[in-house]
Design a protein around this nucleic acid. Structure first.
Lengths: 209, 209
DNA sequence: CCAAAAGTGTTGGTCTTACACCCATGC
DNA sequence: GCATGGGTGTAAGACCAACACTTTTGG
């Protein structure tokens, strides 16, 4: 039953790849980014963007690079999810894949397919693994820097997929002290709304809703 | 800015290793398992047990194998934590390491160092990343199959590092419906206590305490 | 009969939810 | 002046935390 060395001898020198699952919100719709593979056995298939880790970067950096290349976004929220590594039939092509969850604000995105992809598009997503979102403030990464409480509430309603009471929402979110009310107002079609900004764009574990 | 292919050419074919952080409870003390490295640049150092992934196993299986080899335990709780992958100075030795959190019941453990280790021992741990434990029932993996409510409460008190009210604890834990009261009693030094068992040994996300 | 752990309910405070009306602006 | 989203408080119920005495056994 001893191994380490035994398995080292039976060599396991896989490729290491990253896959990024990028979400955004557009028009109250949750969307996720897929790319269409151009060549190989999976030509024509839609898949999550991804690529091999470079020799001089960390796994996390490879994921950030992939996000930057596909969307142009540098400061989205990024979080490692899970590492998959099943053996393939052909050990020569064996790969271990590290997946990431990414949230980006829609207005910052400029989509950009790599040469290896024939297309890149947003697809509507039905929900996201929201156990995380309920306990953190990472929704800031789905919003522009300044936003109204109405917009923030919309984001939560979309993610949680249920309506929230406006008065309760405002009470709770303001009580957390994560927001600063700005002097400005958003002048739109109707009564102007106060603009707010997050005090800190740093993930914090706080039960929000 | 395009890569994928570029980085594939600059080759990245690291070793893939797993590291397991194994916790147990002995005498109300939280302990974690370390091994002493026998050879190489780190000879004499204590480290988490780990090893290279084999050519014919998944990453998860490699972690399970490592736990089985070091402790003899097959059915502990095991959960992937994080994948680390910083580039090294020497690209030839580059490794990506997938870490796992493991919980095992102390009485089932038979420690067994691999040839590559000169020693294997429990060290006292001050706390474990307990955000997880508070929301799940995975403590079952720290207990024998049958246990008293007092013993279960002890486990939670150790993990949370604070005393709990006996009446409130019993109310809450029984209300969750995860436990079955067995017919048997534990006859000890004093008044016999009812034995309980978990209905399902399957991780569930439930806020327990 | 004494020591030690097992077993059991109630109360006050806090937190959460539900709910309706007026306000400021654009058109 | 009307349509639209912005802004505000209170009351009822659910949930949580604190607390003490009786029971059963072994020695």
């Amino acid at each position: 039953m001893e191994s380490g060395r035994r398995f080292a001898d039976t060599k396991s020198h896989p490729w290491v790849a990253v896959d990024v699952v990028i979400y955004t919100l557009e028009q109250r719709k949750l969307q996720t980014l897929l790319v269409q593979v151009k060549e190989g056995a999976f030509a024509g298939r839609w898949a999550f963007p991804g690529g091999l880790m470079g020799a001089e970067e960390s796994v996390d950096e490879a994921a950030e690079r992939e996000v930057l290349e596909r969307t142009g976004v540098k400061d989205g929220y990024i979080e490692q999810l899970y590492t998959f590594g099943k053996p393939e039939r052909d050990p020569a092509t064996r790969a271990v894949s590290v997946s990431y969850l990414v949230l980006v604000p829609y207005p910052s995105v400029r989509l950009n397919p790599a040469p290896k992809y024939s297309d890149i598009r947003w697809f509507s997503a039905h929900r996201l693994p929201h156990s995380k979102l309920q306990y953190t403030n990472i929704v800031y990464s789905l919003l522009p820097r300044e936003f109204t409480l109405g917009e923030l509430q919309e984001v939560y309603e979309t993610i949680l997929n249920r309506p929230l009471d406006r008065r309760n929402f405002r009470k709770k979110i303001l009580a957390l002290g994560l927001l600063t009310q700005l002097k400005k107002k958003r002048r739109g079609t109707h009564r102007p709304a106060s603009l707010y900004a997050f005090n800190e764009k740093r993930p914090m574990v706080i039960e929000m809703l």
